[in-house]
Every structure is written in structure tokens, then in C-alpha cells.
Design a protein around this nucleic acid. Structure first.
Lengths: 116, 116
DNA sequence: GGAATATGTCGCAAACATACGTCATAGTTG
DNA sequence: CAACTATGACGTATGTTTGCGACATATTCC
């Protein structure tokens, strides 16, 4: 990426890619699932549940927070992380729209002849 | 990634992350959308539609093909790329399951108190 | 066979991501 | 106040991604 010519991609494409990148690591997927499983917002002892060092997990949390996918409120000593369900719903719709567009066409499997 | 301890992540998490990574670049999102928009499978002149060099686009195509998200059949001189709509549908379901899980909980916005 | 065309492979350089140890900060508890 | 805990910031080492030009291959057309 000597210099990304991201100029010509649409905002939609870039937004989708940005969110996809957030999910592009098992640790971040696991973090979101973990937060979802706990009703109560859990602090950084998420690290205990993952095969990663605490600082690494913290870094992933920052990344998710940067996209506003999760929220973190300081509660005294611990930090209270929770999913931004509203945004996640939005993102879900975005993905659904994308996949609907992509799966609308005819199947073009190994045996099926594409029309070209 | 000195050494990835990916061992402890579930297969689901890794699979989701793998697909997400494929969508984690605007060029690949654009390629899929472009293939979807053309009923007829279009060859590598996809490159003409993107702000990238032909070889770079070819590389992205290979990446998508490696995940089997797209198919490519050689038709004489040109190559016929098309979406694997079947797999895309599956992936869509996978994402939907993930997002459903993630958005099931209560909203935890700025004003809403999380239960911790 | 030889020119033209479409395509992929290779190697490189710059940018980015990942993982982690060390340290600084801020709150809590005695 | 001092010891302790939870947390993020910083620096660093290593691996991965991205973009591209130069080259190789394969097909068509004359």
C-alpha cells in the first residue's frame, strides 16, 4: 500500500470494508461474542478468556471502540465494556444489503455455464 | 503476530474472521459488487473499473478465489469470473447468526446504564 | 510461424497488523 | 499515605497485506 488510491471507492464500500476489518480477527470476533454472552458488561478480564496477553486484548478492545462497535465506561477501578447493539444492528443491515445484492444473481457453479 | 495462538479460538470464530478478512478491503467489496451487477461473468477488465493496476486486481481476485467466494473458468483467451452465490448465501447466514447473537442483548448506549 | 491480446506469477518496497513486555496512571483498601 | 489492582499508553519485534512493474504463459488471428 505504497499509497492507497482509496479515492475512487464509494463510501459504502469503504465503510463495509472498515467494519469487515474489525471482524477480520478471531480475537475480535471472540470478544464480541463474549460481550454478547454476558448480559452484564465485563471489564478487561476478557483477557482471561482468550489465549492472548492482557495488553493485546486491550489493544483489540481499543480497535473495536475506535469503530464505536463497543462502548467502555470507567466504573471506578474497572472498565465496563458493552456492545453498541444499535450500531451493530445498523451494520447487520449493511451486510445484509451487500449479501442480498451479491446473491441475487443466478448460481454459477462448476457445472453451471455462465452466460459468457 | 510473532506466533499466533489461534489454537484456542473456535472454528466458527476463525471461519467468520477469514471471510471478514476477504471483505476487509474496498477493492474486494467493489469486485464482488461489480460481479453481482453484471449478470454475465466478466473477465479481468474488472481492472478497468477500479483505481488499481491490473496485476493488483488479479491478486485480489486470487484471494477471493482462494476462499471460493468467486469462481473463474478459462474461456479461451479470457477468464470468466462469477460469484459463488451458493457459498455467499451460506456466509450471509453465518454473519446473520453472529449479528443476531450480538444484537440480542439490551442497548447499552451512552445514557443507558449497563448493569455493572 | 509471428504479432497481438488476456492473464497470471514473481519479487520488491512500503505500509500495516499482531503480540507482548514495560511503564505510567488512577482508583481502592487497609 | 502505602500497597495493591485494573487499565491503557508506549516501544519494539516480527509477520502480513498491498500495490506495482517486469516477466512468463497461453490463446487467437493473420
Amino acid at each position: 500500500m505504497t499509497y492507497a488510491k482509496t479515492v475512487a471507492f464509494t463510501a459504502d464500500q469503504q465503510q463495509l470494508a472498515r467494519v469487515a476489518k474489525a471482524l477480520a480477527h478471531p480475537a475480535r470476533v471472540a470478544i464480541i461474542q463474549f460481550l454478547a454472552s454476558k448480559q452484564t458488561c465485563i471489564s478487561g478480564d476478557i483477557a482471561a478468556e482468550l489465549p492472548l496477553a492482557r495488553t493485546t486484548v486491550s489493544q483489540h478492545l481499543q480497535e473495536l471502540k475506535a469503530l464505536d462497535l463497543i462502548r467502555g465506561e470507567i466504573d471506578g477501578l474497572t472498565v465496563c465494556y458493552c456492545l453498541n447493539t444499535e450500531l451493530l444492528r445498523q451494520v447487520h443491515q449493511q451486510f445484509t444489503a451487500f449479501f442480498s445484492e451479491a446473491t441475487a444473481g443466478p448460481v454459477c457453479g462448476p457445472a453451471d455455464a455462465c452466460a459468457c
